[in-house]
């Protein structure tokens, strides 16, 4: 936990620079992987070898080859290009869900920690209730109520993972609130919102950056789990979960249709975990 007395907003920037300069190999490899997928998400056409939606009935269900690096699906569409095409939607779902989850968690967690007293107990109780419901079940509830769509998926995963973050943020806030420099700032007559903004939030946020990094990967896994159950969106667009769900039926005869999208999810989430873990180590090492 970071408890340095000098807190400035610009600190994370410097940290980032420093972080990039001294990275072990696995972190570098992970960063490269993330970069690759982010590029695929932003500009899929750059990396694709085929049109991911182009149907070519003559080359259906081909195993990986030089022409089709990761094989083709039933309609002869190039799986490699489809996985890259799907990166955009999957990343968007992961980021969206994490952003939602973090915002909810921040608002509730900060409110709980700062208010204390009755509001704190009520909010803590709400976290308890939501925490008591397994993430996937909570997501199923949202899908049941609103029907499957990208938005539902984002909301379901976002709300499902929020209680954990909220609890953590509350804990962070409480521990910072009690530290000497906050007391000192109070004694100096700084207005309370300013103290929160300048001192408490930045300190609470640092450890969160690591959690967010890991969280995006986890959110993608949850979302593709929903899609895997057939409760995600089922468009022609090759979102990773949809690819996993479609590939499942072919797994005995066309293994690549299931293995490859799963590998994409795993590798991406793994890279985020490694980077997140590294961030965490760095931040904790600063104590």
């Amino acid at each position: 936990m970071s408890r340095s007395v000098e807190v400035t907003v610009s600190r994370p920037l410097g940290e980032l620079l420093e972080f990039i300069c001294y990275v072990p190999f696995r972190v570098a490899a992970s960063l490269a992987t993330i970069g690759f997928f982010v590029l695929a998400a932003i500009a899929p056409k750059v990396l694709q070898t085929h049109d991911p939606l182009a149907i070519d009935l003559s080359s259906s269900l081909q195993s990986p080859s030089i022409v089709h690096w990761l094989g083709t699906d039933q309609l002869g569409r190039d799986l490699y290009s489809r996985v890259l095409e799907g990166a955009g939607q999957s990343l968007a779902i992961g980021l969206g869900a994490t952003a939602l989850s973090m915002s909810v968690a921040l608002i509730l967690g900060v409110a709980a920690a700062l208010s204390g007293g009755l509001l704190d107990s009520i909010l803590t109780r709400i976290f308890d209730v939501l925490f008591a419901i397994p993430t996937l079940l909570l997501a199923l509830v949202f899908v049941t109520v609103f029907g499957p769509s990208v938005l539902t998926e984002v909301i379901a995963v976002g709300i499902g993972t929020a209680p954990g973050y909220a609890r953590m943020i509350r804990g962070q806030m409480l521990s910072i609130k009690g530290t000497g420099y906050v007391e000192a700032a109070k004694a100096l007559g700084h207005p309370f919102p300013r103290i929160v903004w300048r001192h408490i939030l930045p300190n609470a946020m640092s450890p969160l950056t690591a959690m967010v990094t890991i969280g995006v990967g986890q959110a993608i896994i949850w979302a593709s789990g929903l899609a895997f159950l057939g409760l995600g969106v089922a468009p022609p667009a090759p979102e990773w979960g949809a690819l996993l769900n479609a590939g499942r039926n072919y797994v005995i005869y066309a293994w690549w249709l299931e293995i490859i999208p799963g590998l994409a999810v795993t590798i991406f989430a793994l890279s985020l975990t490694i980077v997140g873990g590294h961030l965490q180590d760095r931040l904790e090492g600063k104590i």
Binding site: I221, G225, V251, I259, G262, V265, I274
Partner: peptide, 22 residues
């Protein structure tokens, strides 16, 4: 360990099913 903590269990399950059962 890190890999296992990340891998989607439903995907792993499908692979295990096909390899070890089918």
């Amino acid at each position: 360990q890190i890999f296992l903590a990340t891998v989607p269990p439903y995907w792993l399950a499908t692979i295990l099913l096909v390899i070890f059962a089918v």
